[in-house]
């Protein structure tokens, strides 16, 4: 059963939900391991590097698996359960693979004034995503509603992977999707 695309992409790439053995992110001597070691020096306690470490995992793997939580915990001296507690608190960490293009439409009040609900409908329609949070059958898209993106003067802002697209209206949605790189 496949939940996502198989090829990781540049910047915000999302790897497959593969069933093979877990390959660690922070293998000794790897660039990521060095990066993490350097990062820990910014703080008086190792555990403070937890959010950044989780970001590294998500950048490399597209999501944060239970095995990754175990690995990060071992790196920072905390239990996998502790790491899971943190992962589940923050909405940006994916606990499951998502589409290659993760589309977050802001629908909080200022954007609702601008018709953000119609932008959501347009994204669902044009991506083939059946409902919010489900990935499209081709693995390319996941659409969710997001709470305030902090760009209310440019309503409706939509975050696609790492990038903001501002002043989005339903009419602009097909062109925005056509412009996304695989």
């Amino acid at each position: 059963m496949s939940h996502g695309p198989s090829a990781p992409s540049q910047g915000g790439g999302h790897a497959a939900h593969d069933h093979g053995p877990y390959v660690p992110v922070f293998t000794p001597g790897s660039a990521r391991a060095n990066e993490l070691a350097k990062l820990m020096r910014r703080y008086p306690e190792k555990r403070a590097a937890l959010l950044p470490a989780l970001w590294m995992v998500q950048q490399d793997r597209g999501w944060i698996s239970e095995a990754a939580m175990q690995e990060v915990g071992e790196q920072l001296g905390c239990t996998a359960a502790y790491v899971k507690g943190v992962v589940t608190f923050y909405t940006m960490y994916h606990q499951h693979p998502v589409g290659q293009h993760f589309i977050q439409v802001c629908t909080t009040s200022p954007c609702l004034c601008a018709g953000a609900d119609k932008v959501v409908e347009a994204f669902l329609e044009h991506t083939g995503c059946k409902e919010l949070g489900l990935t499209s059958p081709d693995g390319k898209y996941t659409v969710i509603e997001v709470e305030c993106l902090g760009a209310c003067g440019f309503a409706t802002p939509v975050q696609i992977n790492e990038d903001y697209v501002e002043n989005v209206t339903p009419e602009k949605v097909p062109a925005i999707l056509a412009g996304l790189k695989d």
Partner: peptide, 29 residues
């Protein structure tokens, strides 16, 4: 004077000052 960016991960409540400190410490916010 060392200045570092610490990146949040999606939580309005981390704008509350004590939640923000917990978040930097690698805790739930």
């Amino acid at each position: 004077i060392d200045v570092w960016v610490h990146t949040g991960a999606g939580a309005y409540i981390c704008g509350e000052e004590t939640a923000l400190m917990n978040s930097i410490e690698g805790k739930r916010g």
